[in-house]
Amino acid sequence: MSDLLTVRGLRLGFGKTEVVHGVDLQVLEGPYGLGVIGESGSGKTTIGRAVLRLHPALDGSITYRGCDVLTMTRVELSAYRREVQLVFQDGDGALDPRMSVQSAIAEPLAIHRTVARGERRDRVAALLAEVGLGSDLLARYPHELSGGERQRVVIARALALEPKLLVLDEPTSALDVTVQERVLQLIERLREHRSLGYILISHNLAVIDRLSESCVVLYQGAVVERGRTRDLLTTPLHPYTRALRAAVPELGVGRPPSTSRLTDGPPQTSSLLQPAGQGCSYADRCPLAVKMCRSQTPVLREVAGREIACHRAEDSLSL
């Protein structure tokens, strides 16, 4: 299978502060899902924006079907963005409050003139139907929609240009669970019907588990573990992935409380500002940390069929 999108050594920052330190990602031709797991401050949203060139890259490369995305001219970029679309988290105000559902979904069609003016209305209604919404919503404005309806309108708009790759940034985290379930089913259906490739950015491990073939775990702007989603979530190796996995509540009652989940780690705000210095960025919170972890920055290496950036990966295996 060939690559749809390849990201190599991507470095991103805000001003002089680097927040993403050399990340590699790979999305195969669809249907294929790459999960990006990370908590707040991990740089996951910025990576998603950088793929669409909404955020400038400091270094590294992004290649889409053999074309270098970072050096594209305006015309090339416009063509690229027809094939690669971004689905925002609902809370981000992804819909213009002054635009009806009809004009919002028709906007990409009008910009790229892919559909004749007279046929746009039918096309918009067809897109709405594809995401499970009725054409009675056409005249509504975003604030007249429920959270689930808004998110589907955002997806319908992203599908209007028949993209090959979607960047889904926390597509369900603002939604109630039953609504989330239906949006997840929608994404599942679309990936098969449209042969979509996508990058799924989420903090919800269960969502990643359900919708991605492989995934990466980000911690403070660097990949700490990468592998097949099933392997990684059933037997996490990196201490951070293990902590994430352990923190997920299991459905049901009677689980004995873990004894040592509590840490008084550094506040997230100041950790963001710390430069990528010496040593492992997770060492301060890590139960396995040894002296070497604070002096040498671990690099990704292959252990047990996956890549992991941890000096003590082998010891982790035997835990």
Binding site: V177, T178, A206, V207, D209, E213, R230, V248, E250
Partner: peptide, 15 residues
């Protein structure tokens, strides 16, 4: 039951 079923769980489906 629907609320419970809607909660995604790790290992809930095979991919």
């Amino acid at each position: 039951r629907m609320l419970l079923a809607a909660i995604p769980v790790i290992g809930g489906r095979s991919r």
